[in-house]
Design a protein around this nucleic acid. Structure first.
Lengths: 242, 242
DNA sequence: AGAGCCATTATTCTCGAGATTATTTGATAA
DNA sequence: TTATCAAATAATCTCGAGAATAATGGCTCT
């Protein structure tokens, strides 16, 4: 889950996960709508209009928007309000390549210094993801939510052994940003791809403590959607509002 | 300068840099006080008390605090207010090593793809920094502000050729966080260190387009304060409130 | 017709007060 | 004395309205 993972200190063992504050639940609702595209990239976010929709006061809504700005999902423009962050192939490439650098680095650190507890929780996350992916074969699209969660949990488990809070925080931001693109790319994924196989390769190499192999598989895995985007955006240039 | 570098879209060529909004100027004032230690690490930030000091309303102050949270200078704790982020050797190590990874990567990209304009502005930044460092020999401490600005400008110029906005944004956050530590470590710097020599080595290798050498020098340069901290925190353990 | 300027409108920004929640204090009982 | 509980205090969170600023539309002049 890890809502607000980037800012709110999830003290303790992330026990309380219900949105206790109105700002927080507005933040979650807005983020959901941005990621799912209800609030399209580049669109203006007028406080007066949004407070009707999300049933909160103006100040509360502004705070939620500020919180989203720190996730780079919305942009604050001086004295001229808020906008949903734009999407572009260029931006996606940036997100992807930065993720490759940080996530591979973090995985390497995990492999070097991760203990038994880390390994165990990784095994658990991989198992869970496998089950979801198994069921995914039958009902491909409507289970996206569940797969997305399991996938995120797996990627977080991979780097949980890395003791750099900075790195994990940045990766969480990047992962959230990438989710917008994943949703757009999902209907256009090639039949040939076997995501489970990719996850398995990463997992096996990690358990073997083979850092070079693991980071290699991970890099390819992260870059897959980017190359996929490149391929079909040549044919259909304005799939994303470029 | 680059206030608010991490969130506010500095559209255009960062033309307007005066704090036009009250939230923004409160943000700047608070950040200054946090970085300079007037608001010590771990201290509670009570809105009612702070609104007296900074002469703004409660909502405005809250927004400024939210902005600082996205720089990781402040921590939001559920329904229990705001605190200045803690400082610890462990945290500084994390910041430093993450910076090494990202900044070296960014420098490599700059060297690979940076054009003449990038090179020219780098030369300018290095020249300016040299001048400040020259004057620094005479008046060591009270010019810290000016040196800090020139130093930041130089580091930003190094990676300006890298076209990854994500990377630059993350580095800006890390640099701001590190500033708190630099200020603590400044009085304890070893006489032997010649910072200008370090900058010169990075600069020369970069202009030579020797990526390996440049990133090597840069990594050592970034890590210097960390090793310095390690050295004298063994002797004087509680210099930082660990 | 096109460009520049002023009044109008719409939106953002800011504030102070009330509602909600956490913390502290003090009292009672085991 | 220590632990438990309840009232009192203090803090945060939330809201709606008023001030400051940007965007819009119409008007005049060349």
């Amino acid at each position: 889950m890890a809502d607000h993972s980037t800012i709110i200190s999830d003290s303790a063992a992330s026990a309380d996960r219900e949105p206790k504050t109105l700002v927080h639940s507005a933040y979650l609702a807005l983020r959901k709508d941005i990621i799912e595209g209800q609030l399209p990239p580049g669109s203006k976010l007028k406080v007066e209009a949004l407070k009707e929709i999300y049933k909160v006061g103006a100040g509360t809504l502004r705070e939620a928007l500020l919180l989203l700005a720190s996730d780079a999902l919305i942009v604050i423009q001086g004295q001229r309000g808020f906008r949903v962050a734009e999407m572009s192939p260029c931006d996606f490439r940036d997100i992807t390549e930065t993720r490759v650098v940080l996530e591979c680095h973090a995985l390497r650190m995990s492999i070097l210094s991760g203990g038994d507890a880390w390994e165990a929780s990784l095994v658990a996350a991989f198992h869970l993801l496998g089950r979801v992916e198994q069921r995914l074969g039958d009902h491909p699209d409507d289970m996206f939510e569940e797969w997305e969660n399991a996938n995120k949990a797996f990627h977080e488990a991979l780097i949980a052994g890395c003791d750099s809070a900075c790195t994990r925080r940045f990766l969480s931001i990047l992962y959230n940003q990438a989710e917008r693109y994943r949703r757009v790319l999902l209907p256009n994924r090639p039949k040939s791809r076997n995501v489970h196989r990719e996850h398995e390769a990463i997992f096996a190499a990690t358990i073997d403590r083979d850092a070079d192999a693991a980071t290699g598989f991970l890099a390819d895995h992260i870059r897959f959607n980017l190359q996929n985007l490149k391929k079909f955006s040549d044919a259909i240039p304005d799939t994303l509002a470029i």
